[in-house]
Design a binder for these strands. Sequence first.
DNA 1: CATGAATGAGCCTTCATTCAT
DNA 2: CATGAATGAAGGCTCATTCAT
Lengths: 187, 187, 187, 187
Amino acid sequence: MRAASAKRQRLMAAAAQVVHQQGAERTTIADIARAADVPVGNVYYYFKTKDELVAAALAEHSRHLRDLTERLERLPDPRERLKGLVETWVGQRDLAARYGCPTGTLAAELDKRDEGGLDAEAGKVIRLLLEWAEQQFRELGLPEPDGLALTLVGAYQGMSLLANALRDPQIMTREGARLIGWLDSLV
Amino acid sequence: MRAASAKRQRLMAAAAQVVHQQGAERTTIADIARAADVPVGNVYYYFKTKDELVAAALAEHSRHLRDLTERLERLPDPRERLKGLVETWVGQRDLAARYGCPTGTLAAELDKRDEGGLDAEAGKVIRLLLEWAEQQFRELGLPEPDGLALTLVGAYQGMSLLANALRDPQIMTREGARLIGWLDSLV
Amino acid sequence: MRAASAKRQRLMAAAAQVVHQQGAERTTIADIARAADVPVGNVYYYFKTKDELVAAALAEHSRHLRDLTERLERLPDPRERLKGLVETWVGQRDLAARYGCPTGTLAAELDKRDEGGLDAEAGKVIRLLLEWAEQQFRELGLPEPDGLALTLVGAYQGMSLLANALRDPQIMTREGARLIGWLDSLV
Amino acid sequence: MRAASAKRQRLMAAAAQVVHQQGAERTTIADIARAADVPVGNVYYYFKTKDELVAAALAEHSRHLRDLTERLERLPDPRERLKGLVETWVGQRDLAARYGCPTGTLAAELDKRDEGGLDAEAGKVIRLLLEWAEQQFRELGLPEPDGLALTLVGAYQGMSLLANALRDPQIMTREGARLIGWLDSLV
DNA sequence: CATGAATGAGCCTTCATTCAT
DNA sequence: CATGAATGAAGGCTCATTCAT
């Protein structure tokens, strides 16, 4: 991977944010350049195509996810880690109600494509989350940790989508509380 | 609402299908016209703007939903109706794994827009489903039927998104089975 | 000329009005059809092309002009006729301030065209007015009646254009008064 | 106002000329691009919409007018300035007979519009001419200089329109001579 | 003649990408 | 590496005109 110059870094962050807010299709290179305060013509020295910029946005989300899980792993109890994850989601309820889950909405958008392989890229980020959750469930000694992870992450994607579609952050709060209860109930 | 001529009907069906597969943004009027076997210029006789066509696609999904719930309502037991709903979802697992839930992905895409009011339109269709589910839970005499509906529909959206992102229809099967079990466990 | 059925008559009147208000280029066949309350597809039984409709608008203005001059000719004194003409112009000051002289603005628009011969058609209507005015000046025994007609009609076109461009009907009143004074001063 | 690059300047000149000849409505962006020898897509780098190009054409005419009045102001006598103005008009008789007064015909066309505000813009250019003429009449110590300006400019617009409608440059010569005589007669 | 529907050419505009300096 | 400018391929939409019934 190329050295992450300040400008490149700025472009990635801008891409992540703008694409989350506007969607990949409606986002123009100029939008991202403006948000990153980089001249349009210069963008292409860091990212050869628009798809690379979208991939960068995805990588940025991936990095955020890694940061989050690393922070959560400082908690000794896997159950607490999972509950911390849910609390983080609920903490971002306003953003979710406005623009949905950054990775989920992007994945949904990219999965409509036939070419470019970006769809698989989005799947990978989601898989990272799934695997991390699975690992926690496994450490708790629970059966079918992969199925539990699927249920947890699926619930997150579902509640984000509903909160977004209905423009109601309360949905995040409500379903978040239910998930916390569910996590506590697992033995 | 306008009388649905055969051609108009064909355009609506084509719009629903093509938009589901390609997304609203990547779908061109020409794509829909081709799928409906209608000359491009003629499309505008039935729908004045592209947005109207997207709204028509949404209406088509809404109609499908109504057809489905009407069919399910022939079942005497609300619990069976809900289980039938889940089975329908699982039955469409291949489509969901390829393109996601038609309404959910469209809602996610439209919610990125600032103008046009189509985002609210998508929310309405999802709300229809929520309300129908809520009604079934209510008839079962369960507490907080609205919360249960949220959980059910959220699970559907989540599993569709995961199945789509991971290109794995088995996710629909697996989570579907879990939902059936959950429905059976509710007292 | 074809027999003027009621519908054809309505289309001519509508064409004259709508073209005056919107200009020939911005006026669609549908606009005229709507104003005349005639189905779009039916228009072509009366006018084979849009140009024919514009020509019809011109003919309508020509007819209005003939009506006006015939009315004025009931006055015994040619000078009074000419003053009556000016008074008529001033009486239409609000329309002129909003849309200009129907014939003048149409002539200006059509004169930009290379083909179709409609430009010459517009010139003919203006020439009718010029010739009528010239005849009055001649009857007054004034020298160079054609030059006087040119001055009078030119003043009318100029004041209409200025009133229109500055959206000020007062210009019509002011210049009209001046023209009356001028007519009175001619010996 | 933006710095006028050579290409932008070329586009403005081309817009002024082509719009004068064809009218704003019949002029396509491609026409202007071709006349300026600029690729179509590139036009939008300088002018965001077609309306901006029309406004640029108007500004170009405004600039021409300013150049002319500045040149005329080198003459010591205001009356000579006004006569010089008329002579300039007569000098352009062939252009006027073919396409009318650039500003006047454009104003007439734009005044048919309801939106965009371009109509007011055209009015401003005409007002500039009126105000300059008024100033000259004022310096001559004549009463009602604004009325005199209206008469002069109105006569110009009228004779341009008639010359154009009748395709006869002689009208410019004839009416120009009359205006010269009129200017000389004012005391 | 009547009429809703059909057709296709053309226009404005956007934008990813490339180029010259 | 920087940057403003250039380029061309679409895409949405309008509309005069024609057609089928």
